[in-house]
Design a binder for these strands. Structure first.
Length: 335
DNA sequence: CATTCGTGGGT
DNA sequence: TACCCAAGAAT
């Protein structure tokens, strides 16, 4: 991992922190290109702190959980004001976007604090070591306690950074959710889940709720120059602070086309360019992409939004769901 | 303690 | 297709 210090090197707290924020609920493969772009664009935490929030959101676009990007920016400004990252857990956790896990991870990996960061990997490993039958998320506190017991090993306590990342590697490479490679596991001999014969049964999870559907329309309006009419979403909530195509509200059931078109930003000859389906964390969104062209955006002067030249679409903070809409309509936002 | 908050890849 | 899951945080 590019954020990982080589043997004998000192970890860069900025790089460790950035990687940990990006890796929250996100796979290494997905994070890698974003991480490289951020470090190239913002080599230091000061550079990130001085950047406009919209630029940060645009660079984050596609990674998801956009409150991470807003908190990342706020955190960078706080750290710049402090003159550097706090090196203790409490100081770290007081910063925006840094919770119990990330505070421990940065403390252990960047500052050598002897603590076990409990992420999904460590929860899985621990639940298997102890064959913990109680379901997540209720059993989280107990798993956290059991995980801290791993630090009873003097070798673990002597190398907090290596130990934490070794746990991640164990979880990602051997103690995997589906088919763990127990025969290669150094802890096979002390693992109760392995002894049970069904290690993949752990951790036990509570059944999850069904995901409802929502329906809406978006309006892709262009002028004679090819510019697109866009608008910013509210600062908080779903896709907070990101850029979007104007659209209807999202309802539990699809409404008829005529009444939906009444919500269009302007009266125009709207034609359906396509439909997209996008799965969010807690609902599935179905959008019909309506397209129209006007000579200019004069009629929109008192509408919320702004005109975006086609060549600067790629610099907008467009979330994946909006990229999909542009793509089905043939409006490329790729560079 | 339960919800809200993205997205892409694997099975 | 339909789930599951991934170095969680904020409210």
């Amino acid at each position: 991992m590019p954020w990982r210090a080589l043997p004998g090197q000192v970890a860069d707290p900025y790089a460790v922190w950035l990687s940990e924020i990006m890796l929250q609920q996100t796979t290494v493969v997905t994070v890698m290109p974003y991480y490289e772009r951020f470090l190239k664009c913002y080599p230091t935490v000061q550079d990130l702190a001085e950047a406009p929030l919209q630029d940060v959101l645009a660079l984050w676009a596609g990674l998801g959980y956009y409150s991470r990007a807003r908190n990342l920016h706020a955190c960078a400004q706080a750290v710049a004001a402090l003159g550097g990252f706090p090196s203790d857990i409490a100081g770290l956790q007081a910063l925006p976007g840094i919770g119990a896990y990330t505070a421990r991870a940065v403390a252990a990996i960047a500052f050598g604090v002897p603590v076990v960061p409990v992420d999904g990997n460590v929860e899985r490993i621990t639940s298997r070591l102890y064959a913990e039958d109680a379901p997540l998320p209720g059993v989280r506190r107990r798993l956290d306690h059991l995980a801290t017991l791993l630090n009873d090993d003097p070798a673990a306590r002597a190398a907090p950074s290596d130990f934490a990342q070794a746990l991640f590697d164990l979880g990602a490479g051997l103690c995997t959710p589906r088919r763990p490679s127990c025969l290669m596991c150094p802890w096979r001999g002390v693992c109760r889940a392995y002894a049970s014969g069904e290690p993949e049964r752990f951790p036990v999870r509570a059944p999850r709720k069904a995901k409802p559907d929502r329906h809406g329309l978006v309006f892709l309006l262009r002028d004679d120059s090819g510019a697109v009419w866009l608008r910013h979403r509210p600062e908080k909530g779903l896709l907070g602070g990101m850029t979007e195509l104007p659209g209807t509200s999202w309802l539990d059931e699809a409404q008829d086309l005529a009444s939906a078109l009444e919500e269009a930003p302007v009266e125009a000859l709207w034609k359906e360019a396509g439909q997209i389906r996008h799965v969010f964390t807690h609902f599935t969104l179905h959008l019909r992409v309506m397209m129209a062209r006007v000579p200019d955006f004069g009629a929109l002067h008192n509408q919320p939004g702004f005109a975006c030249p086609s060549e600067s679409l790629s610099r907008q903070a467009l979330p994946s769901v909006m990229q999909k809409c542009l793509t089905v309509a043939g409006a490329t936002a790729a560079d």
